[in-house]
């Protein structure tokens, strides 16, 4: 089998003639989070009619139109959605995780808010 000649394409994906790239210098401009950085957007997808939009992830885009197009390209390549929302991340306000305990405890001792709290005779059947 190994007598066959395998045609190896050495153009395009060529190994180094002189191996080693530890001396490669960065030619890109230094990173700055300047005004030239595209803002961050949060992406929400409705997977099918009748369901809520659900947070899918985030991306960078110059404006809303681009954010929606990019979201289409990266988050719905396999028909994951029929509708997209994008919101610039800076407009999202969130509850503070450090306060979570006191913030959400009031709901903890109110078991009477759940239907299972009430014992009813079996004769009632469905209620």
């Amino acid at each position: 089998m190994n007598t066959y000649f395998i045609k190896k394409f050495l153009y395009g994906d060529i190994p180094e003639v002189t191996a080693g790239a530890s001396d490669v210098k960065n030619t890109a401009a230094p990173a700055t989070e300047s005004k030239d950085t595209w803002p961050l957007w949060e992406v929400f997808i409705r997977s099918k009619q009748g369901l809520d939009h659900k947070h899918a992830g985030s991306l960078h885009a110059a404006d809303a139109t681009m954010a929606i197009e990019n979201a289409r390209d990266v988050y719905t390549r396999r028909q994951e959605g029929v509708s997209l929302w994008v919101v610039e991340s800076k407009y999202i306000h969130a509850s503070n995780p450090d306060d979570a305990e006191s913030f959400y405890t009031p709901a903890e001792d109110k078991v009477y808010r759940h239907p299972t709290f009430y014992d009813l005779p079996d004769e009632v059947k469905h209620m």
Partner: peptide, 23 residues
């Protein structure tokens, strides 16, 4: 890992080229 593989330089060059030309 230390940068002496067959294509390390080529990969970084390609990345830098794409980044710079996309600026």
């Amino acid at each position: 890992v230390k940068g002496n593989g067959p294509c390390n330089r080529q990969r970084l060059d390609a990345r830098n080229k794409a980044h710079n030309e996309g600026a």
